[in-house]
């Protein structure tokens, strides 16, 4: 996909209201706000499931992952629901990710910009599993790397993605970034 840089004059803020992403380390676990990603949902239209997968493969260079899985190279795709995926890309180079994907998938898929519908927090470190088990009811100890699941954290519907051995990505609703961040930091402080 092509690289498009926006030239407008408005300065963005992160979901937590800062100009820079917030990073905190407690007890060997680091929570980092990750605003540098663009997101777009891609949902296959009825009876266009095959074409959508083909288009996605062409667009992202990855096979659309199966239920509960993530595929990742430069861009990342994770499964959201039946015939529905979230595509994640570096924000700087893909701020118009949704438009680019729509151009490639044409009428085979419905594409919606989701960049600011979510906020991503990366939680990583040696004790990350102890933190995760205070946050959500997923079996994160047994969760494979490159698995993703919906889960409720502090009453918020989130995606929890296992990025690498001691590294999880939590995608939560942007407007509740403060509450979600508080829950994560509290769990980091609380966990042993």
């Amino acid at each position: 996909m092509s690289v498009v840089k926006s030239m407008h004059s408005l300065t963005p803020i992160t979901a937590l209201g800062g100009s820079e992403p917030r990073v905190e380390t407690i007890g060997g676990v680091t929570c980092r706000e990750v605003p540098e990603v663009a997101l777009a949902s891609v949902t296959a239209r009825l009876k266009h499931e095959g074409q959508t997968k083909t288009a996605l493969k062409k667009a992202v260079g990855l096979t659309a992952p199966d239920v509960g899985l993530v595929a990742s190279k430069t861009l990342t795709i994770f499964w959201m629901g039946p015939d529905q995926w979230m595509v994640e890309a570096p924000f700087d180079s893909h701020e118009d990710l949704a438009a680019q994907l729509k151009a490639l998938t044409k009428d085979h898929a419905s594409v919606a910009e989701q960049t600011d519908a979510w906020t991503r927090f990366d939680v990583s470190g040696e004790n990350v599993l102890n933190v995760m088990e205070l946050l959500c009811n997923l079996n994160t100890r047994q969760m494979a790397v490159d698995a993703v699941s919906r889960s409720s954290i502090h009453h918020l519907g989130c995606f929890v993605r296992h990025i690498s051995a001691d590294h999880f990505g939590i995608y939560g609703p942007r407007a509740s970034a403060g509450s979600l961040h508080h829950a994560i930091i509290t769990a980091m402080s609380s966990a042993r």
Partner: peptide, 11 residues
């Protein structure tokens, strides 16, 4: 029906 929904309230 061929229809897809997604919330964009916070986007």
């Amino acid at each position: 029906l061929d229809v897809q929904l997604i919330s964009t309230t916070e986007a």
